[in-house]
Simulated scan of single mutants.
Amino acid sequence: MPKPIIICVDDETLVLDSLKIELRKFFNNNCLYEFASSGEEGLEIVTDLEKEEPNSKKVVISDWWMPSMKGDEFLIAVHEKYPEITTIMLTGQASEAAIADVLEKANLHCCIRKPWEYEDLMHTIKQII
């Protein structure tokens, strides 16, 4: 059975580094991990993974406030192309309207506010994969 894949997208290196440490601590080698610093890069990674690992369960975790492509646009684009991928918004700045839009248009699994609680985020992901 293929390993689940967790894709994290955030323009802040510190956030990506923290997620990297926490995910590996919690899931060890039971998952594959990908990290992107923009929505565009995230879409490239998701598209490549769908070609390379079409049968793997995938979870995309994205920030909302990013340059050029906001997280809501990114998550909606992922959902339109790959509706089977589960999406999570991890944000400190998204408005309720932006969250509601993603809930409706991207079937958002949940929105977790920054700073996140380690246990909450890990158990949310565990329920999905």
Rank of each mutant, 00 (worst) to 15 (best):
N28A: 15
A98L: 08
I21S: 11
L14F: 11
A106G: 14
E96P: 06
M89R: 07
P4T: 04
V15T: 12
N55C: 07
C110S: 14
H79F: 12
C8S: 15
E104L: 12
I45M: 03
E117I: 15
I6R: 08
L75A: 04
G39Y: 06
V102P: 02
I5P: 01
E34P: 00
V9T: 06
S62E: 04
W65N: 13
D120E: 15
P54Y: 10
P54K: 12
Q93P: 02
E40D: 11
K58C: 03
V59D: 00
T13C: 07
I129S: 03
L103H: 13
D120Q: 14
F35W: 07
K114G: 03
I45L: 08
K114L: 09
S95E: 06
T124F: 06
F27Y: 10
R113V: 02
A100M: 09
F27Q: 03
K51A: 08
K20R: 15
I61E: 01
L121I: 08
I129K: 12
C110I: 15
I45D: 01
V60N: 02
K58D: 01
M66H: 09
G39Q: 04
F35T: 01
F35Q: 02
A94H: 04
M122E: 05
I99K: 13
S56G: 04
V102A: 14
R113Q: 12
K81E: 02
M89H: 09
E52W: 05
M1G: 14
I88P: 07
R24V: 03
C8I: 02
S37C: 09
V9L: 06
E41S: 11
R113N: 12
S95R: 13
L23V: 07
N107R: 13
I45A: 00
K105R: 13
V9I: 14
L23Q: 05
K105A: 08
F26S: 09
E50T: 12
Y33C: 04
D72T: 15
E119L: 15
D17F: 10
E80F: 09
E50N: 14
G92T: 07
M1K: 14
Y82G: 03
M122F: 09
T91W: 07
D17C: 01
V15L: 03
L75V: 05
T47E: 10
S62G: 05
K105Q: 15
E50R: 13
K20Y: 12
A97Y: 11
Y118N: 11
N55G: 11
I21A: 11
L14V: 15
